[in-house]
Amino acid sequence: SKIRITWGDKTWEWDGDDEEVWKRILEWARNLGDEELWRHVKEWVDK
């Protein structure tokens, strides 16, 4: 399956939905430097 994140007018996609993928997404969000996006992603990961 895919994980799709839409933020503003951008959309990103990742293949898979296991823990490793979420770790990569969390790292990606942090590297993007958008605090609010990172917080949202972290909330999803922690669920």
Rank of each mutant, 00 (worst) to 15 (best):
46 D>Y: 03
13 E>Y: 05
39 R>S: 10
21 V>R: 02
8 G>Q: 10
24 R>D: 10
37 L>A: 04
29 A>I: 04
37 L>D: 01
7 W>F: 07
17 D>C: 15
24 R>H: 11
22 W>D: 02
11 T>S: 11
1 S>E: 14
32 L>W: 12
28 W>A: 01
18 D>Q: 11
16 G>F: 15
24 R>C: 06
23 K>T: 14
29 A>Q: 00
36 E>Q: 06
21 V>F: 05
21 V>H: 03
25 I>A: 03
14 W>M: 02
8 G>P: 01
41 V>Q: 00
14 W>L: 04
24 R>L: 15
44 W>M: 12
44 W>Y: 09
39 R>A: 13
1 S>N: 15
9 D>Y: 01
8 G>H: 08
26 L>W: 05
20 E>A: 09
24 R>M: 13
43 E>F: 06
40 H>R: 11
44 W>V: 08
9 D>P: 03
8 G>C: 06
31 N>F: 10
38 W>E: 11
3 I>M: 04
26 L>K: 05
46 D>K: 08
13 E>T: 06
20 E>G: 14
41 V>N: 00
39 R>I: 14
32 L>A: 12
21 V>C: 03
33 G>Q: 09
30 R>V: 10
32 L>F: 15
46 D>V: 05
44 W>G: 01
13 E>S: 04
10 K>A: 12
3 I>Y: 02
7 W>S: 03
16 G>E: 11
40 H>V: 09
24 R>Y: 09
11 T>G: 03
25 I>L: 06
33 G>N: 11
6 T>Y: 09
47 K>P: 03
29 A>H: 01
30 R>P: 01
35 E>F: 04
5 I>F: 13
40 H>N: 09
11 T>V: 12
8 G>D: 11
36 E>D: 15
44 W>S: 03
14 W>E: 01
25 I>S: 00
42 K>S: 13
41 V>G: 00
16 G>C: 09
19 E>L: 12
24 R>G: 11
17 D>I: 10
28 W>R: 00
28 W>Q: 01
43 E>C: 09
13 E>V: 06
15 D>S: 09
47 K>T: 11
8 G>E: 10
33 G>I: 06
3 I>F: 02
38 W>S: 07
22 W>R: 07
17 D>L: 10
37 L>M: 06
34 D>A: 03
42 K>C: 10
28 W>Y: 02
27 E>K: 04
18 D>P: 12
11 T>E: 11
46 D>G: 06
10 K>N: 10
3 I>A: 02
21 V>M: 06
35 E>Y: 06
3 I>C: 02
28 W>G: 00
45 V>D: 02
41 V>I: 15
47 K>C: 03
5 I>E: 00
4 R>N: 07
27 E>S: 08
36 E>H: 10
11 T>C: 11
30 R>L: 13
20 E>K: 09
19 E>S: 11
27 E>T: 06
46 D>T: 10
43 E>A: 11
9 D>W: 01
47 K>H: 14
25 I>N: 00
6 T>D: 06
16 G>W: 13
13 E>G: 01
9 D>F: 01
5 I>G: 00
33 G>P: 04
42 K>I: 13
23 K>H: 11
22 W>E: 03
6 T>K: 08
8 G>K: 07
32 L>C: 05
35 E>Q: 07
6 T>E: 11
4 R>A: 09
34 D>N: 07
24 R>V: 14
43 E>V: 04
41 V>R: 00
1 S>L: 15
16 G>N: 14
33 G>A: 09
34 D>S: 06
23 K>F: 07
37 L>Y: 04
33 G>S: 07
5 I>A: 01
39 R>P: 02
2 K>G: 06
42 K>L: 13
44 W>F: 14
4 R>K: 15
39 R>M: 10
36 E>I: 04
46 D>L: 05
30 R>W: 15
14 W>D: 01
27 E>N: 08
32 L>Y: 15
3 I>L: 09
29 A>V: 05
47 K>S: 09
22 W>P: 03
47 K>F: 05
8 G>I: 06
27 E>V: 06
41 V>W: 02
31 N>C: 08
27 E>P: 00
34 D>P: 04
29 A>T: 03
2 K>D: 03
16 G>T: 14
8 G>M: 07
13 E>K: 01
41 V>F: 05
14 W>P: 01
35 E>A: 07
28 W>E: 01
5 I>V: 10
38 W>Q: 14
3 I>H: 04
20 E>P: 04
29 A>G: 03
20 E>N: 12
6 T>F: 11
8 G>A: 06
14 W>Q: 01
36 E>A: 06
39 R>C: 08
28 W>H: 02
39 R>W: 10
32 L>D: 06
34 D>V: 06
12 W>N: 03
7 W>K: 05
1 S>A: 15
16 G>Q: 14
8 G>W: 13
30 R>Y: 14
36 E>L: 06
21 V>N: 08
32 L>H: 15
8 G>L: 11
15 D>N: 12
36 E>W: 08
2 K>Q: 06
19 E>Q: 10
